[in-house]
Design a protein around this nucleic acid. Structure first.
Length: 230
DNA sequence: AATAAATTCAACCGCGGGACG
DNA sequence: GCGTCCCGCGGTTGAATTTAT
């Protein structure tokens, strides 16, 4: 898995980069005639020098009908912030709540606008807590790190066993520069799934179900089901 | 007007995981 | 159970565009 390029993407003459209007028209015409499904074969059948993955992305993020291409409304903004505070960067789930928006749209909008907007208002965009509160947590963490370092140094004197690497890793986590700018090592906030960039996927897992549609092809539906459920 | 810096966003990448033979 | 195919996701990149100097 994940070894080498996806099928159809290994050719040297496969085009990359921005799509031309002509390519868009070809893809649009193909999907209109045959529907979506098995993207691997789409480039060949549609007469495109692209890999299937690129075609799928172009379709889902840009050409698909009913997509909104105008700016986000304040209501949409509010919903994104609320959902991000609850479930973190699960862009596809957030986008599902916003008709006409793609996960890529939402992700880009968050990264370029909303996170900065929140920071401007003194809200940490990762934790959604006031930045002053987060800074206090970081200071506390630094004190804890210093204490840990001191303890580790004492315990490791004349001791060259396997625990050294374990302690070194612990030190690295506690003392890493990222811990001063990120809350990844802070304890989870009650009522939230996680504080990390990608909340742990213990609550949901993606399941795809092949469904028979009335259209010219079958397609897959993504479902989110609790872990352990079949 | 020139150009450097910042911003935007479409597209790419790598990976996880379901379907299926 | 295993291997392969394929799709979808989140993170990242970089070209195009805009803004600042």
């Amino acid at each position: 898995m994940g070894v080498g390029p996806p099928a159809g993407c290994e050719k040297v003459n496969v085009k990359k980069g921005l799509w031309s209007a002509e390519e868009d028209a070809k893809l649009h015409a193909y999907v209109a005639a045959h529907g979506t499904g098995n993207w691997t074969n789409v480039p060949k059948k549609a007469g495109l020098k692209r890999c299937g993955k690129s075609c799928r992305l172009r379709w889902t993020n840009y050409l698909r009908p009913n997509l909104k291409h105008e700016g986000f409304t304040s209501q949409e903004e509010e919903l994104i912030v609320t959902l991000h505070a609850t479930i973190g960067s699960r862009w596809s789930i957030i986008a599902n709540q916003l008709p006409g928006r793609t996960d890529n749209d939402v992700k880009n909008y968050w990264n370029t606008k909303l996170s900065k907007k929140l920071a401007l208002h003194g809200i940490d965009p990762v934790t959604h807590r006031p930045i002053s509160e987060v800074k206090h947590s970081i200071t506390t963490l630094h004190i804890a790190a210093a204490t840990s370092t001191s303890l580790l140094n004492n315990n490791n004197n004349n001791n060259n066993n396997n625990n050294n690497s374990l302690n070194r890793d612990l030190k690295n986590i506690l003392l890493s520069p990222s811990s001063t700018t990120s809350t990844a090592t802070l304890p989870p906030r009650p009522g939230r799934l996680s504080l990390t960039k990608s909340p742990p996927k213990v609550h949901f897992r993606r399941r795809r179900r092949r469904i028979n549609s009335s259209g010219p092809s079958t397609s897959l539906r993504t479902l989110f089901v609790p872990r352990g459920a079949r």
